[in-house]
C-alpha cells in the first residue's frame, strides 16, 4: 500500500481540460483513480456513456486522458480508453481483460495490464445492471468504478435507480401531487456482493485516504471489485461552489451514502458513520445545502439551522427513517463473510 502523499505525487491519467462542470466530483474521482493506477502497469480504461465520457472524450479534443508528458516509449505509462454505449463499460473492460490474459497466456505479452471500467449510476444500475452483474458473476478481474450522482446527469438530471427519496429531479419534479422522488434506491451494494464480487465499496474522495486505499485494493483484487463513488453533482443537486467535497463527506456521515468497504472472505466495515442516528450530523443540514431538497427544509433565521418546512415534517421523518435503514443495512452487509 502506498501512502496518501505518495499517491498525490503520481501522474494521473485523467488530465485537465475536460468540459465537466467546475467542482464536479466525477472529475475529482477520476483524477484520483488516475493517480492510483499510475503504478507501473499499463492501464486500459473503459467508460460508459455519461457526463464523464462526453466531457472528456470529445473529438478532436481528447483532452482529458492519457498519462501526459511521460515518454511514449514507457509502456508502464501507456494508457488506452474505450467508450461504446451506456451499459457497456464492464463488458468492454472484461473483453480487454480477457484479450490481455489470453495474450499473456500465449506468451505474447509479458508486461502487466490493469483494466478499469467507469460508469455513472444510470449506466451501471439502470440500463447496465445486467452488464454489471454478469461481469461480476463471471469473476472478471477488473475494477469497476460507479460514479453515483443519483441521476442521469448527462441527459439533464433525471431520476435514476440510485436517486435519494424525495429528491427533485427532472422526471420526479416537486408538485402538489408529489414530493420529489417517491422510490427508494436500489440496493446495489448487496446486489454486487450477491453476484459474487470480490470487493464492494462505497467511498468518495472526500474520505481521501480511504478512497485511494480502496482503489489500490480494488486494483489488486483477483475478481471483480466494484467501487461506488458518491458523487455530489453541482448542477443536478444544485448546491454552491466549493461545496462538493464537503457535501460528499456530510452525506456519508449523515447516512445517505456511508463509506463502506467489504472484501470477500474478510467481511467489511462502515466507516465514519455512526450506527445511532443521534451520533450522526443532522440530516437537515445535509438536505439544506441542496436545492433538490428545497421543498423539504428551510433555514430557520433564529437558529441558523435548517429545519423541516411547515407541513413537511412527516416527509423529513420518512427521510430520516430511510437514512437509518440505509445505515443499518450497510452494517448488516458488513457482517457478510
Amino acid at each position: 500500500m502506498s501512502g496518501y502523499k505518495d499517491i498525490a505525487l503520481r501522474e494521473s491519467s485523467f488530465r485537465p481540460g475536460s468540459t465537466l462542470c467546475p467542482g464536479c466530483m466525477e472529475s475529482i474521482a477520476l483524477q484520483n483513480v488516475g493517480r492510483v493506477s499510475d503504478n507501473g502497469r499499463k492501464t486500459i480504461f473503459s467508460i460508459g456513456t455519461s457526463c464523464a465520457e462526453v466531457s472528456s472524450l470529445a473529438f478532436p479534443n481528447v483532452v482529458a486522458w492519457g498519462r501526459g508528458d511521460a515518454s511514449p516509449d514507457d509502456f508502464a505509462k501507456s494508457f488506452s480508453i474505450i467508450h461504446n454505449v451506456f451499459e457497456s463499460a464492464p463488458t468492454l473492460a472484461e473483453a480487454a481483460r480477457d484479450v490481455s490474459d489470453i495474450l499473456a497466456d500465449h506468451g505474447a505479452i509479458d508486461r502487466p495490464i490493469q483494466v478499469i471500467a467507469a460508469s455513472g449510476d444510470g449506466g451501471a444500475l439502470a440500463i447496465g445492471l445486467r452488464s454489471l452483474l454478469h461481469t461480476i458473476y463471471r469473476q472478471s478481474r477488473i475494477t469497476m468504478v460507479v460514479l453515483v450522482n443519483e441521476i442521469f446527469a448527462n441527459t439533464g438530471f433525471q431520476y435514476s435507480p440510485a436517486t435519494t427519496p424525495f429528491a427533485e429531479t427532472s422526471t420526479t419534479p416537486v408538485g402538489e401531487a408529489q414530493a420529489g422522488n417517491p422510490r427508494l434506491p436500489l440496493d446495489y451494494i448487496h446486489l454486487c456482493i450477491a453476484a459474487g464480487a470480490g470487493m464492494v465499496a462505497q467511498v468518495s474522495p472526500a474520505h481521501g485516504k480511504l478512497f485511494v486505499k480502496t482503489i489500490e485494493k480494488a486494483l489488486a483484487c483477483d475478481t471483480t471489485a466494484v467501487v461506488f463513488v458518491p458523487a455530489p453533482c453541482i448542477s443536478g443537486w444544485k448546491f454552491d461552489d466549493g461545496e462538493t467535497v464537503h457535501l460528499a463527506e456530510l452525506g456519508a456521515q449523515c447516512g445517505a451514502y456511508p463509506a463502506f468497504v467489504w472484501e470477500r472472505g474478510k467481511g467489511g466495515a462502515v466507516k465514519d458513520c455512526a450506527r445511532e442516528a443521534d451520533d450522526r450530523p443532522r440530516l437537515e443540514e445535509f438536505l439544506g445545502l441542496q436545492r433538490r431538497f428545497h421543498h423539504l427544509v428551510q433555514k430557520d433565521p433564529a437558529s441558523g439551522q435548517f429545519v423541516a418546512r411547515p407541513g413537511r415534517e412527516p416527509d423529513v421523518e420518512r427521510m430520516r427513517s430511510w437514512t437509518q435503514s440505509n445505515v443499518e443495512r450497510l452494517f448488516r452487509l458488513a457482517e457478510l463473510p
Partner: peptide, 18 residues
Amino acid sequence: GAQTPLRLSQSNRTAGYA
C-alpha cells in the same frame, strides 16, 4: 472510426469556464 491520440492533446483551455 474517430479513434484518437491521447498524449499531449490538452488543447481545451478550461480557464474560460471560470
